[in-house]
């Protein structure tokens, strides 16, 4: 069953076309990855999915609902871990989660309990009362992950969840995401780490300059093109660059 369908999705910012007429479907319970070089339009796609960026044209249905008509309902069932940290820096780790829970109309008692559980889940129990300013970058990412789970989302959107993490923390996050997948949470993520995509994603969309070059499982892609996913990625996105006047071919 498709939990998300996008058709003819296009987004223009002033004069840049960030997303250029793309179609994709995401199935319930799968882990779907968006890959692509900087500026490919991954974040823009994510932000359209959670209704913060309005498409210039095209349609997106989430849970069968049109995002234009039902943003609140859709957002109440989605969790978002953004690319940029946007925690409340004045508040403690715990308070961050509790304040966030209020946006979802989660009662205080429930949210307090959930918040403690989530802090434990991401290994931040000791930091519960610590100010955000005193958390390391990796800890802040972990807290963002915890925050995105506060409403037990059916779809979890993760924009570069492991960027800036040390190898241990990265493996930790991977394990969490596998956990969530077992529980039938639909995961949508972007990453620049091909190993991450290979390990986690059932299917990936490789994007470049606002377009989707291909959508397939990492396994199929590797079989078709030979080599590992990184090789496939460089080959596919490099090919497009080659045709351009100032293009540089990343394949070496």
């Amino acid at each position: 069953m498709d939990i998300i369908t996008a058709r003819g999705l296009t987004k223009d910012f002033n004069h840049t076309r960030a997303v250029d007429n793309i179609d994709f479907d995401i199935k319930k319970g799968e882990c779907f990855g968006f890959l692509g070089p900087n500026g490919a339009g991954k974040t823009t796609v994510m932000r359209m999915l959670y209704c913060v960026v309005v498409p210039t044209s095209g349609t997106i249905k989430v849970f069968g609902l049109d995002i234009e008509d039902n943003p609140s309902i859709i957002k109440s069932r989605i969790g978002v871990m953004p690319q940029d940290d946007n925690l409340d820096i004045e508040l403690s780790a715990l308070k961050n989660l509790i304040v966030y829970a209020r946006y979802f109309e989660i009662p205080y008692r429930t949210s307090r309990k959930t918040a403690y559980n989530l802090l434990e889940y991401v290994g931040l129990t000791e930091k519960a009362d610590e100010n955000i300013k005193n958390l390391s970058g990796g800890m802040q990412r972990a807290l963002l992950l915890a925050r995105s789970l506060i409403n037990s989302p059916e779809i979890l959107i993760l924009d570069e969840p492991t960027t800036g993490l040390d190898p241990h923390s990265r493996h930790n996050v991977w394990n969490k995401l596998k956990d969530l997948k077992e529980k039938n949470t639909t995961l949508i993520l972007t990453t620049h780490y091909m190993e991450e995509a290979e390990r986690l994603c059932d299917r990936v969309a490789i994007m470049d300059r606002g377009r989707i070059i291909t959508i397939d499982s990492p396994k199929n892609l590797m079989e078709t093109h030979g080599g590992n996913l990184e090789y496939v990625y460089l080959k596919l996105t490099g090919k497009r660059l080659k045709g351009k006047e100032n293009g540089e071919n990343n394949l070496s």
Binding site: V52, S72, K75, P82, D84, D85, N86, D88, Y100
Partner: peptide, 14 residues
């Protein structure tokens, strides 16, 4: 700077 609005708008708040 703080991107608080981004955080809030990702929730049911419109």
């Amino acid at each position: 700077f703080q991107k608080t609005f981004d955080a809030i708008l990702a929730t049911p708040i419109n």
